[in-house]
C-alpha cells in the first residue's frame, strides 16, 4: 500500500485530479462558463445523445399509442353500439309515424261510416301478366278477410277480394272488367256501373257506363259507390270523371273515370271486412 502512494501511477492520478479541480474552480467560479473538457465531451456526445433520445422518444410514443389505442377502440365500439341502438329506435319511430299517418287517414272514414270493420293489409306482390293491376295482400281467411270484401285506401275504392287463402288474398282492382260496381254521381244523381276496359286500363282509367240517355255527368264530377248489390258499401269514392265518350257499339254514353286511389303504387290498403248491408255467401 505504501508503495502505491509512492508509485508513479498515484502521482499521475493526483496530478489529473488537481488539474480538474483547478479548471473547475477557475471556469466555474471565476470565468462562469463550463470547462473546456465538458464542452469537448458534450460536442462529441451530443449527436449520439440526440440520436438515442429520438429513438427513445419514438419508442415511448409507440407504446403510448398502443396503450391509448386500445382504450380509444373500446370507446369507439361503445359509441358505435349506441349509434346502432339509436338507428334502430329511429327506424321504429319512422315506422310508427307512418302507421300513425296511415290510420289517421282512415279515422275520418271510420267516423263517417261507424258500421265499417277494417283489416289493414300490405301489398306483397303484383301479377305482372295482368294488365288490370291486380295484386296480392298479406291478409287472408285467418285474419277475417273473405271473398268479395271491398278493398280501399284513404283516397278511395281500390277493388275487391277475388281470391282468399289462409294467409293472403288477391285483389282485383277497379280497372278490371271483372269488377262491376254500382255507382252514381252525387251532383247529378246519375246511376251507372263502374267496370274496367282493356284500352282504358292501359291508361290507368276505368269506365262508368250504362248511363241513361239524359245523364248529365260532366268532366270533374265525382263517382261514388251506391251500395246497390251489397258488394260495395255506399259512399266510397271511386274517382273523378275525366272524359265523356260515346260507345261505338250501342251509341250509349259512358264516362271515363280516373280512380281516386293510386292503384299501381299503393302499398298499404284496408279491407272492409264488414258493413251494414253487406251481402254474404257470394
Amino acid at each position: 500500500m505504501r508503495y502505491f502512494f509512492r508509485s508513479r501511477r498515484f502521482k499521475i492520478f493526483a496530478g489529473i485530479t488537481a488539474a480538474l479541480l483547478v479548471i473547475a474552480i477557475v471556469c466555474g467560479a471565476v470565468l462562469k462558463w463550463s470547462s473546456p473538457l465538458s464542452a469537448a465531451a458534450g460536442a462529441v456526445a451530443s449527436p449520439v445523445q440526440r440520436f438515442f433520445s429520438s429513438v427513445a422518444g419514438g419508442a415511448g410514443e409507440f407504446f403510448s399509442n398502443v396503450k391509448d389505442g386500445a382504450a380509444l377502440r373500446a370507446d369507439n365500439e361503445k359509441l358505435q353500439q349506441e349509434i346502432n341502438d339509436l338507428t334502430d329506435k329511429l327506424i321504429q319511430f319512422q315506422e310508427m309515424e307512418r302507421e300513425n299517418a296511415f290510420y289517421k287517414d282512415y279515422l275520418g272514414l271510420k267516423e263517417e261510416h261507424p258500421d265499417f270493420t277494417f283489416q289493414d293489409a300490405m301489398v306483397i306482390g303484383r301479377d305482372g301478366n295482368d294488365p288490370f293491376g291486380s295484386f296480392t295482400i298479406d291478409k287472408g281467411l285467418l285474419q277475417g278477410v273473405a271473398l268479395h270484401d271491398p278493398v280501399i285506401t284513404a283516397e278511395g275504392l281500390v277493388g275487391y277480394i277475388t281470391e282468399a287463402s289462409a294467409s293472403q288474398s288477391v285483389v282485383t282492382t277497379v280497372l278490371s272488367p271483372a269488377l262491376n260496381a254500382s255507382a252514381y254521381g252525387p251532383r247529378t244523381k246519375d246511376n251507372g256501373i263502374v267496370s274496367g276496359d282493356g284500352e282504358l286500363a292501359s291508361r290507368g282509367l276505368t269506365r262508368f257506363g250504362y248511363l241513361s240517355k239524359d245523364a248529365n255527368v260532366a268532366v270533374g264530377d265525382y263517382v261514388v259507390s251506391s251500395g246497390a248489390g251489397g258488394i260495395f258499401p255506399a259512399g266510397l269514392l271511386v274517382g273523378t270523371v275525366a272524359e265523356i265518350q260515346q260507345d261505338p257499339m250501342d251509341s250509349s254514353t259512358y264516362a271515363v273515370v280516373k280512380p281516386a286511389a293510386a292503384l299501381s303504387t299503393c302499398r298499404d290498403v284496408m279491407v272492409v271486412t264488414g258493413f251494414t248491408g253487406q251481402s254474404g255467401g257470394q
Binding site: 306483397i124 306482390g125 303484383r126 305482372g128 294488365p131 295484386f135 299501381s264
Partner: peptide
C-alpha cells in the same frame, strides 16, 4: 324479382317480365 312491387320497372302500368 317478378312479383315484389318496386323491384323492376313496369310496362303498361302493371307488367313485369316473366
Amino acid at each position: 324479382l317478378q312479383y315484389v312491387p318496386g323491384v323492376l320497372p313496369r310496362v303498361g302500368g302493371s307488367g313485369t317480365p316473366s
